[in-house]
């Protein structure tokens, strides 16, 4: 049991971070507004959680301008993909220890 708990990643231990990672896993990228709408979170909330995930190098941030408006895109990194997959596997094992 202790072994499994080790794989539960503290970096994903929040609803918004879990949501951000889930969205980025199945999309090539997502921009700030898309994350905000899908997760129903505030600007500050999204900003702080993406920053935390970037610090862990789980996501990368691309800033550009679309029609002179700043646009921020988030992309999951290879290590982020690996870490999140492990996290999901650990969660599944905790729910179904027999499998």
């Amino acid at each position: 049991m202790k072994n499994i708990i080790q794989h539960i990643n503290k970096a994903f231990d929040h609803r918004v971070r879990l949501g951000i990672m889930s969205i980025l896993m199945v999309n090539d990228f997502a921009d700030f507004n898309m994350l905000k709408e899908l997760l129903g979170a505030t600007d500050g909330n999204i900003a702080s959680h993406t920053k935390a995930l970037e610090k862990e190098a789980y996501i990368s941030i691309e800033k550009s301008f679309i029609n002179r408006k700043p646009n921020t895109r988030y992309i999951v990194t290879a290590s982020g993909r690996e870490a999140f997959t492990k996290h999901i596997e650990a969660l599944e094992k905790l729910i179904n220890p027999n499998e």
Binding site: L18, S22, I23, M25, V26, A30, L91, I95
Partner: peptide, 19 residues
């Protein structure tokens, strides 16, 4: 256990909702 189950459900919902 309930929280983990909810986490998994949240992940599934977000993945399908966003794609």
């Amino acid at each position: 256990n309930k929280n983990y189950l909810k986490d998994i459900n949240d992940i599934k919902t977000m993945m399908s909702r966003s794609s």
